[in-house]
Amino acid sequence: MAERGFSVSKLPAFRPVALGVFLALYLPIFTLVVYSFNAGNSIAVWDGFSLKWYLSAWENDAVKTATLRSLYIATFASLIATTAATMAALGTTRRKAFKGQTFIYVMINQPLMVPEIVTAVALLIFFAQIKVFTGYQGLGYLILAHAAFCIPFAYLPIRARLEGMDLSLETAAADLYASPWQTFRYVTLPILAPGIAAGAMLAFVISLDDVVITEFVKSGGQDTLPTYMLGQMRRAITPEVNAISTALLVLTVVLLTCFFLLTRKRNQ
């Protein structure tokens, strides 16, 4: 019998452990989705099928404004983050290795490493000072905060795409009379586009579901969908929260599916 090398799947109890992990991961979500269709008021006792909680959420003005605010913030934050990430990726890959490269790499990915609560407190204090100074109370703070922690998520797929790009294509463009700007516009950018779209989507999803930083940075009446839900949970919990969560889940799954399609190796 030929040695096939080490294989995790050959270990004893591999199957039950794997099954257990999958159950732990997906059973709660499954329950959440199921009870969003509950006809009763409980999130634990099944009372028959109904769509009433979706309707109730849909007609709830607080949910509506929170949703719109979330989408608004996510749109602008992911736009800013993606632009910054694209430039950062171009700056860190389109050149020979330089001193301090690793340092810059770490700096860009800082939000992935610094505990979120630390960033949240820091932003709270920092923005509080600006608020006093300028009197501005708008959504700008949230957008900026979200953009900041979304940058690494947008940066990684863009950088991966850039590193996979054949540098001789840019040389070829220059050879064919394209100015540096034209080379970027007609060669680099189109080839980079799937990476940028993927980065933007990831940033959007990350922004959409943030709680910690939003909770700290938001002013009164600036609830996003996740912070609104958190607020609701402190009072009476109805399957309405399940319904909203399920809707959010569907949106996230759709966006992440797009992300994986875009970052697949050969996306022809």
Partner: peptide, 20 residues
């Protein structure tokens, strides 16, 4: 003179055709 301003074109060993 930069390459885009020279009346010279190159056929690259790897062809370097634009995939998009």
């Amino acid at each position: 003179l930069p390459p885009n301003r020279r009346p010279v074109n190159t056929v690259f060993q790897s062809y370097a055709l634009f995939p998009h």
